[in-house]
Design a protein around this nucleic acid. Structure first.
Lengths: 253, 253
DNA sequence: TTGTTGAATTTTGAATTCAAAATACTGTAG
DNA sequence: CTACAGTATTTTGAATTCAAAATTCAACAA
């Protein structure tokens, strides 16, 4: 009996884990987070080629962990790897953007319904506070502040659904959309409309009216889609989208 | 002007691509598919340790592509990698199973709504045919035939929603659930209920009644969840879940 | 000039090697 | 006999190396 019997659950070690295991994160995880950040923040632009050797030198690592990171990012659809041709930041087609927003609308609507059943008063209060903070940002024309509060509100509603799998899925899809926000040059009319939507959301949440919240969120997302896709067309006209390489070697002619 | 200007979309090569690019798939992709298959089919059981060296020898490859495959599978939540301790097939907790089914219910309901708007008569006819094929399997007690038709029906409804991003998400979540099907030892009563549900689905699809189809699908999935989670408890009692290693070296005492 | 062929260079894919961490084992003290 | 310390072995993480494919570039012909 030197080995535990085959059918045993073997949960952890036998002893109670007084402290959580200290796990230094692996290099490739750091690289994933690093690159993900730069992609979602639009530093690495859609279509940009990601040269392995070049990136290795920039980040000061070898190719092995970088390539592992590439695989993960590709699984998240943030980059595309074509065999023997290398990786590049994913370029979403118009159709993909359209579909992704449609999915997000469905996902948020569903999360909203669940949130109405499960949200605590404390969480609701936090969301309200964020809403007012967002209004303050609008008053000061603080676009980035407005944007992050907005994100946070949607995020909290999602978290209030208390479904971790839904949450992970939501975050993953959302990441792909984040990089697009630079496309939509919000007009003040749109801002006003968005604020109205948010107020209605909070009312529905307070009333625990899942169906109504779902409908509002769905509509809200579709409006956002319109805004982004118009911005996208504008971007296409001015041709401000694709880079050639990581930019480190931008031909210094 | 040896390099194309920075802001250029550079779609493909200039010429029309008469033939699609021939791309042999990389080793690591093959490995991903291979392992994914065995995990979703329950050959590699939850909790099983995946020893790198051992698997390399079995598959006849080196560790590099295997580790890349691991990263992808981990991103899909099919395996778990703990730093310096290696990879093992994901073991879903009760809570995770519960949540995953809840998400699936939401996803299928949403897809059903869209399908009602977009399905073609031909697609509907195919689904009907599959339904009857499924009935035939039930009559013959052909469990695996029944199961695959069942899957196919749900899959086709999803496809009829004509949203590729939704589809990919659905498939990814579904993969995690597939391995669980061995847990639920379907009772005939349940079968009957499932068949009733399917008939109602098709009626709703024909009537293009999105809301009704959504409701049926949601309910259907929650019933499935009950069945699986009861089976899961049963499995826990008999303790037939966790393996120790890949089985290749099952201590030949 | 324009387009094509073929060699040189670069870049990616996969195996191997080296280092660090974790696990298994052995011997000793209590 | 049990518990522990210290060592040996195994296993993972990351860098390096080798091979194959793609790209670049120059020479040449039409």
């Amino acid at each position: 009996m030197q080995n535990s019997a085959e059918g045993e659950p073997l949960p952890d070690s036998g002893a109670t884990p007084l402290l959580p295991r200290l796990e230094r994160q692996r290099l490739h995880d750091t690289v994933v987070e690093h690159l993900r950040k730069f992609i979602t923040e639009g530093v690495l632009k859609p279509g940009m080629k990601l040269n392995e050797r070049e990136l290795c030198e920039t980040l000061g690592i070898s190719r092995t962990p970088l390539r592992e990171a590439f695989k993960v990012l590709a699984a998240e659809n943030l980059i595309e790897i074509s065999p023997n041709r290398g990786a590049s930041v994913s370029r979403m087609t118009e159709a993909e953007i359209w579909e992704t927003f449609e999915l997000m609308a469905g996902l948020e609507a569903f999360a909203g319904e669940l949130a109405c059943e499960r949200i605590t008063p404390a969480e609701l209060a936090q969301i309200k506070a964020l809403h007012y903070a967002m209004l303050a940002c609008r008053a000061q024309n603080d676009l980035s502040g407005y944007y992050s509060r907005n994100q946070e509100i949607h995020d909290r509603i999602n978290a209030a659904a208390r479904n971790g799998v839904l949450r992970q899925t939501y975050l993953s899809i959302n990441r792909r959309l984040k990089a697009l926000r630079f496309r939509s040059n919000q007009q003040t009319q749109k801002w006003d409309r968005a604020v109205q939507d948010h107020e209605a959301m909070i009312q529905a949440l307070e009333a625990r009216d899942g169906k109504r919240l779902a409908a509002i969120l769905r509509q809200h997302l579709l409006e956002k889609r319109e805004a982004v896709m118009q911005g996208s067309l504008a971007a296409e006209r001015t041709g401000s989208e694709a880079g050639e390489n990581t930019g480190a070697s931008a031909s210094a002619a």
